[in-house]
Amino acid sequence: MATSSGKYSPELRAEVVRVVLEEGRTYAQAARDFGLIPETVRHWVKGEREKNPATTERAQEAVDRAKVSEMERRIRELEMENAFLKKAAAFFAKGSQ
Rank of each mutant, 00 (worst) to 15 (best):
E81H: 14
A90P: 00
I37F: 13
F91V: 07
V63N: 08
F84I: 11
G24E: 12
R25M: 09
A88W: 13
Q60D: 11
G95Y: 00
E81F: 13
E50Y: 02
R18A: 09
K94Q: 13
N52W: 07
Q97R: 06
T3K: 05
R18N: 02
K94C: 04
L21I: 02
A54H: 08
E57K: 12
G95I: 00
P38G: 02
R13V: 08
A54M: 14
V63H: 11
E39K: 15
V20K: 06
V16D: 09
R58C: 04
G24F: 14
R25T: 00
I37P: 06
H43W: 11
A14C: 07
Q29R: 11
E70K: 15
A59V: 02
M80Y: 13
P53T: 00
E79M: 03
S69T: 13
K87E: 15
L78D: 03
A83Y: 04
I75E: 13
V63G: 01
M71L: 15
P10I: 00
V16S: 01
E48Q: 10
E57Y: 14
V17G: 07
A89Q: 04
V41M: 07
F34R: 08
A54I: 06
R18V: 01
G95L: 06
E15P: 01
N52C: 05
Q60A: 06
R49W: 06
S9V: 04
N52F: 05
A89S: 08
K86Q: 12
V20I: 10
T56E: 13
Y8L: 08
D33Y: 04
E72C: 06
P53G: 05
V20G: 09
F91G: 00
R73D: 10
F91S: 10
F92H: 12
L85R: 10
E23V: 03
F34L: 09
S69M: 14
E81R: 14
L85A: 10
L78P: 01
L36S: 01
E48G: 03
R42P: 10
R13I: 12
E48R: 10
L85H: 12
Q97N: 09
T40H: 03
H43K: 08
